[in-house]
């Protein structure tokens, strides 16, 4: 008796498991591979693209270097790189198209009299070579370094631009941009970094080498704490039709709203 009941349930459950499958017939797909920092922007774009066209989209977060290699070896359609292509990579038949710029703003408490730092000083502060605000043109007070958790795209971006990878002496590692902004707004001696889109009035955005971070200065390259998000393709082999559609869509102005939503500045 009990066995029968059990069997019925198993049958019912297994039938419900398969309902809903089978209606996604996708012979076409786009595969991307590369920078983990681009996860957010490419994720949003891919999701919308997949919903609109029914072409399935995959993203393999491996890192810029692996992404570039994957394109070279033909293991994916589009490689994602959060650094410029090197000369030998270009010569080997790769082409980089800038999708967006990741601008990182250095923020301090509004009570802090410092309003400009050189890129070199930012690096010195974060590596612990400058520990007091008086050495950077401010009041006497220990500098409190606030950053993001290991693995965060913003941290990766900041550390690679300022050349401070694995050398930052953080006092706090927080898991969201919002937390960084809140902490900096609470401590007069704190310094932090956040993506341009997230910065609020509760903190003061510093100018770096005299240039304020705006969409314009990030795009024209005069604001230096920034890096490009690059789509890597091959020059000799054309993209598949699906990949071509995806490429055209994300580099068109239609995608700008989505790109901005993910916290970076669209390039096109």
């Amino acid at each position: 008796m009990k066995k029968n009941v059990f069997l019925t349930m198993v049958v019912v459950l297994s039938v419900t498991m398969f309902v809903g499958c089978g209606n996604k017939k996708s012979s076409r797909f786009v595969s991307t591979d590369g920078s983990t920092s681009m996860e957010k922007v490419i994720g949003i774009l891919g999701e919308v693209f997949q919903n609109d066209t029914g072409i399935s989209f995959t993203y393999n977060p491996t890192g810029s270097g692996s992404g570039i290699k994957a394109v070279q070896e033909g293991r994916c359609d589009i490689g994602l790189s959060s650094r410029k292509l090197k000369k030998d990579e270009m010569e080997s038949g790769l082409k980089g198209t800038v999708l967006a710029y990741d601008g990182i703003v250095i923020i301090v408490n509004p009570a802090n009299p410092v309003s400009d730092l050189s890129l070199e000083n930012v690096a010195k502060i974060y590596t612990g070579k400058i520990t007091n605000w008086s050495e950077a043109g401010g009041n006497n007070g220990d500098i409190i370094l606030i950053g993001r958790e290991a693995g965060s795209g913003t941290r990766d971006g900041f550390e690679s631009i300022t050349n401070t990878k694995d050398a930052c002496k953080y006092r706090q590692e927080l898991t969201s941009t919002g937390d960084v902004i809140t902490m900096v707004s609470q401590n007069p001696n704190a310094i932090g970094y956040a993506s341009l889109a997230a910065v609020k009035d509760s903190v003061k955005a510093l100018t770096v080498d005299g240039v304020a971070a705006t969409e314009e200065t990030i795009k024209n390259g005069s604001y230096v704490v920034q890096r490009p998000f690059i789509l890597v393709t091959k020059t000799d082999t054309p993209l598949s039709e699906a990949a071509q559609n995806f490429f055209a869509y994300i580099t068109s102005p239609d995608a700008n709203a989505l790109i901005s939503k993910s916290g970076v500045v669209p390039a096109n």
């Binding site: 220990d142 006092r171 902490m183 609470q186 401590n187």
Partner: peptide
């Protein structure tokens, strides 16, 4: 966190 910073006079309360 700001409270601890002020009461104990440390650079950061976290």
């Amino acid at each position: 966190v700001p409270g601890i910073r002020k009461v104990f006079n440390v650079p950061d309360g976290a």
